[in-house]
């Protein structure tokens, strides 16, 4: 295939992966709607969770057949979507004969793929977490549509400054780190929602609805923390690798370029989250809020800093 054909194939695959994710989203909705589960309440003993006892969603075992089937279909569609999504990047890379993260369109597309893969890994390893699929895929589809509408850039060669092996190191880890923090942030948002729900249940109300289908607050909190613990060293490495590259490319390893500044802010906020989670008075909700702020900082760094600020990281390629 010629590079042009590969490039247009890549664009088509982008639409296909959005379609597959949307179908997966519908299937997740169906799972939530049709699958009626008996929720078993048990006391949670765990070092990480909030001290209060919380009803923990059990695994899909208690679910009736129809809901289970929808769940499997949804996961399958998500996996297919992720395959198409990965193919978007591979065909782009082949079309341009370089790593497919040279501009903002490619970077964000890769980031969303990491988030989807991170979710799939959790869903396979911890069946109880499958139910958050809708809450992961809804932002994923939204992000993909926005990327397609506003960030799309034609396949093309890299500018001279990006032709370095550090692109493979620095940008790849940035993508992975961002994708993981994305999952962590969503888990904390869901945690905050679920904690409120559980408080209302404890107060004797019967809120019902979708929230009852979420995993327990303690589980969500643990997922948020473990992903952040995984993401933090990756982000640290991203910043260090970026500094090493900047030393070679821009003549200094750190210069408070807007992107560097926001990477630093994100690092500090995630450091605060990891500290908060082990500090009395900050555990639970306040810590989760810190994590949500961290996600906000990461998104701001990707969108505002790339498109509005002028700095050395102006590789967005968005006109």
């Amino acid at each position: 295939m010629t590079p042009d054909q590969l490039a247009s194939l890549s664009d088509n695959l982008f639409s296909i992966s959005i379609a597959l994710y949307s179908l997966a989203m519908v299937a997740f909705c169906a799972q939530l709607a049709f699958g009626r589960r008996t929720t078993r309440t048990r006391e949670l003993v765990g070092a990480g969770g909030p001290p209060a006892a919380s009803p923990e969603a059990t695994t899909g075992a208690g679910e009736d057949g129809r809901g289970r089937r929808w769940g499997v279909i949804a996961l399958g569609l998500t996996a297919l979507g992720a395959l198409a999504h990965g193919a978007v990047l591979i065909t782009r890379g082949l079309a341009t004969d370089r790593l497919p993260w040279g501009n903002m369109y490619e970077f964000s597309t890769a980031t969303v793929l990491v988030a989807v893969v991170a979710y799939l890994v959790f869903a396979v390893r911890t069946p109880g977490l499958r139910h958050i699929g809708l809450f992961v895929l809804a932002p994923v589809v939204l992000a993909m549509v926005l990327i397609g509408l506003f960030l799309y850039a034609e396949a093309g060669p890299l500018v001279a400054a990006l032709r370095s092996y550090w692109l493979a190191i620095h940008v790849s880890t940035a993508i992975i780190g961002f994708g993981i923090f994305f999952v962590s942030g969503i888990a904390s948002v869901l945690y905050l929602v679920r904690v409120r729900y559980e408080e209302r249940v404890a107060a004797g109300e019967e809120p019902g609805g979708l929230l009852s289908r979420l995993p327990g607050a303690a589980v969500l909190d643990r997922v948020a923390h473990r992903t952040a613990v995984f993401g933090f060293p990756i982000w640290t490495f991203t910043v260090i690798a970026g500094a090493i590259w900047a030393e070679a490319a821009w003549g200094r390893f750190w210069g408070w370029d807007p992107k560097e500044t926001w990477a630093f802010i994100a690092w500090v906020v995630y450091a605060a989250y990891l500290h908060a989670r082990t500090t009395a008075g900050w555990r639970g909700r306040p810590a989760a809020w810190v994590n949500v702020v961290g996600l906000g900082v990461m998104i701001f760094n990707l969108t505002f800093v790339n498109m509005v600020s002028t700095g050395l990281h102006s590789y967005a390629g968005v006109s």
Binding site: G255, T261, V269, T279, W282
Partner: peptide, 27 residues
Amino acid sequence: AMRTAIVLLFLLALAAVPGSLLPQRSL
């Protein structure tokens, strides 16, 4: 105390914000 450290971390993050939104002489 750890609580102070967390607040200071937040202050540090917050303090860096204007440096990216306003033009800087160093840049």
